[in-house]
Computed example of a mutant assay.
Amino acid sequence: MFFQLNDRVFINLNKISRTKIDHVEDGIRVRFYEGKDQIAKSQKFDDVKSAQKWLKKALNIKK
């Protein structure tokens, strides 16, 4: 199953081993990993709660 991260990037969710919401120098981002290698990162968010909400909505995760 593929997930569209933005207008140019599609991620194969079958290969994603983990996601991580991370504080980086330019803001908060969701990072996507295959094994130990980071393969993509999301846009910037103002807080962790916004990043979590975006990730759940993007991946169609229900509460």
Rank of each mutant, 00 (worst) to 15 (best):
A51Q: 03
D7E: 15
D7G: 04
R18N: 08
R31D: 07
L59A: 09
V48W: 07
H23V: 04
G27A: 11
E34T: 04
Q43E: 15
S42A: 08
D26M: 11
F45W: 06
A58L: 07
N6T: 07
R18A: 03
E34D: 10
K53Q: 15
Q43N: 13
K36S: 14
W54I: 06
A51F: 03
K57A: 07
I39W: 03
A51L: 08
N14L: 11
K49G: 01
V30Y: 00
N14D: 14
W54L: 03
V30D: 04
I28C: 06
E34R: 03
I21V: 14
L59K: 13
A51Y: 03
I11A: 01
K15P: 00
W54Y: 14
K53E: 15
D37K: 15
G35S: 07
S17Q: 02
S42L: 08
K36T: 12
D47F: 08
I11E: 01
R31T: 06
R8M: 12
A58S: 14
K20P: 00
I11L: 12
D22H: 10
N14K: 13
D22F: 05
K41A: 09
W54P: 01
D22I: 07
R18K: 15
I16C: 07
D26N: 14
I39D: 03
A40L: 10
F32L: 07
S50R: 06
K15F: 10
H23F: 05
D7T: 10
R31A: 04
A40D: 09
S50E: 15
I39E: 05
Y33Q: 03
I16P: 02
N6E: 10
D22C: 10
I28W: 03
V9S: 09
E25F: 14
K20M: 09
K57R: 12
L59H: 02
H23A: 04
I39M: 08
V9I: 14
S17A: 05
G35D: 13
K53L: 15
T19R: 11
I11G: 01
N14P: 00
V24F: 01
L55F: 13
S42M: 09
A58V: 02
K36D: 12
T19D: 06
N6A: 05
I21Y: 04
I11R: 00
L59P: 00
E34F: 05
R18P: 01
A51C: 08
T19K: 12
I39P: 02
N60F: 10
